[in-house]
Nucleic acid binder design. Sequence first.
DNA 1: GTGGGTGCAAAGTGTTTGCAAGTGT
DNA 2: ACACTTGCAAACACTTTGCACCCAC
Lengths: 164, 164
Amino acid sequence: MVGAYTAPVSVEESNIAKERFLEFISTKGLRLTSQRMAIIDTVFSTQEHFTAEQLLEWSRQRDQSVSRATVYRTLPLLTESGLVREMDFGKDYKHYDPNYAEHPNHNHIICQDCERIVEFESEKIEKLEDEITHNLGFSLKSQRIQINANCEELKRMGSCRNKT
Amino acid sequence: MVGAYTAPVSVEESNIAKERFLEFISTKGLRLTSQRMAIIDTVFSTQEHFTAEQLLEWSRQRDQSVSRATVYRTLPLLTESGLVREMDFGKDYKHYDPNYAEHPNHNHIICQDCERIVEFESEKIEKLEDEITHNLGFSLKSQRIQINANCEELKRMGSCRNKT
DNA sequence: GTGGGTGCAAAGTGTTTGCAAGTGT
DNA sequence: ACACTTGCAAACACTTTGCACCCAC
């Protein structure tokens, strides 16, 4: 299966991710505070990549009392649960991707012109990666592919619609 | 071609990379100072990944006058030339990989147990990536794959030789 | 009630930059 | 000579943390 998936995540799907995280918290004996809930609701109601700063802003729209510190203290929990992945696109700040619950092996194409990010999956590549890793004496735990690309649009028309 | 390449880079090869960088500097109308030369010599005489701090330390062994600022000012030139690649392994600091002159498409397997990093190449994967990228309306400029894995060694013997 | 959680502000850390002096071309 | 480079230290930007108070369980 190859292709970008741009359809909105259904309510059921995102609730499943959220449920899984609540279970994760509970299993670890951690507490469910209103601030954490605001952050969790925010994370699992979007499929957009976000930064710590954006997460703070969005979460504050749900609960004004959320602080930057709590956001930074919650992010490690999210990544530890495996439901959110930390990503580095070469910027100063980290990006977080909440789409790993439904698509644990997806990858990214980053357009150097318009900074659009498209996600894709490929079973063929996954299989090759697994083979290679095994042949070199390891067993694959997780993988990430980052492809830097140019818009065909830019090449054809000199600029692309998303360019700021 | 799949496999780690661990054989030392020949003197000729590393000199070629260095020559190419000197040409890059000259083409841009930049100057060749003794500090820059110490940094360049350091970078192109190793195939190890390094951090800014390590590069500073090693360069100072060649020229005591190299400062941290000059290292940080030279790194962007190195990456801009395409001969060195900035990499993020999820640590606080960036790593730099000087092996892109000879193997521009190589990728990394990072062992979560012993932190060993193995490089590999795969033409099959490259071809698939190119196809996928093109099908999604982009043209591939560069790519990087990062595989997190576990040592078979660890699984078999409970620990692995490189574990610190 | 208690141990984890929170906000605030200060501290930390890797990286960048202003400035005056130095130097390759 | 001129413009690019340098070292130093201060400045930055993002992230982490100490502390006193708070609250979920």
